[in-house]
């Protein structure tokens, strides 16, 4: 494997966003790119990252390899990069280590680190292709604020999507609260758009603790996409350049 990423910061942000959810992960490398799939310990949430080969320049992967990496170790090394550094990831066949080289774009500094790999026996889940009943795009900062605000009142949030809009509501010991968003187009700042694409009304309840955790990815993308269908996990997607993405799936809360 040899993969050069223009922005070391991108991988750093991804790792920062997922490392409280999952600890040891396989980075599956093949000629289409670098993928990661992992559930949290309680099997409530699933992280799925895809960095397509087009996100790297150049990208070369001659044989499929799984790089088992502890994310705390990876985070430590990625913190050694300067924010504008270029990152090259390298691994040999049947590797013991993954090699990270940081290059400064405007100086001649070159730093190099090896991280020891681990054998991770990870269960891989098949995620079915789903036509969701509701697809919502909104500013990622807005979604983060809603989740944080409602978590002050309750452990759970009900997300209801109708043709009127999308309503986030909660009920707790001190009282209740709700935030409703309607479709909204801002021509000057498309990042502020709220788009709701609904084929049938949806109502589901989710744990706010996990949603707040997912929102650590807000720095990766100005917009977040929420996809919901009744009785299936919520998909929270942060789109990255070149069709790469960071996705989180969250199992709903269900009636007893």
């Amino acid at each position: 494997l040899e993969a050069r990423l223009e922005q070391a910061n991108l991988l750093k942000k991804v790792v920062d966003a997922i490392k409280d959810l999952v600890q040891d992960c396989n980075f599956d490398c093949n000629d289409s790119g670098i993928a990661l799939q992992a559930m949290d310990n309680s099997h409530v949430a699933l992280v799925s990252m895809m960095l397509k080969s087009e996100s790297f320049s150049p990208f070369r992967c001659d044989r499929n390899i799984a790089l088992g990496i502890n994310l705390t170790s990876l985070q430590k090394v990625l913190r050694c990069a300067n924010s504008e550094d270029i990152l090259t990831l390298k691994a040999e066949d049947a590797p013991d280590v993954v090699n990270l080289v940081f290059e400064s774009a405007d100086s001649d500094r070159l730093s190099e680190y090896d991280i020891k790999l681990m054998d991770i026996d990870q269960e891989h889940l098949g995620i079915p292709e789903t036509e969701y009943a509701a697809n919502i795009s909104m500013p990622s900062a807005e979604f983060q604020k809603i989740c944080r605000d409602l978590m002050a009142l309750s452990e759970s949030v009900a997300i209801e999507c109708t043709k009127e809009g999308v309503k986030f509501s909660c009920n707790g010991d001190i009282g209740s609260g709700s935030v409703t968003l309607r479709s909204h187009t801002n021509v000057d700042k498309p990042e502020n758009n709220v788009e709701i694409d609904l084929t049938e009304p949806v109502a589901l309840t989710f744990s706010l603790k996990y949603l707040v955790n997912f929102c650590k990815a807000s720095g990766l993308s100005g917009q977040v996409k929420l996809c919901l269908s009744n009785e299936v996990p919520l998909l929270v997607e942060y789109g990255l350049a070149s069709n790469s993405y960071l996705r989180f799936y969250l199992a709903p809360k269900i009636g007893d």
């Binding site: 409530v44 699933l46 891989h124 889940l125 098949g126 996990p233 199992a251 709903p252 809360k253 009636g255």
Partner: peptide
């Protein structure tokens, strides 16, 4: 009262 379901209830091992 509601309880938390898990992901493996919806997505099966590949």
């Amino acid at each position: 009262k509601s309880r938390q379901s898990t992901i493996d209830r919806y997505f099966s091992p590949r």
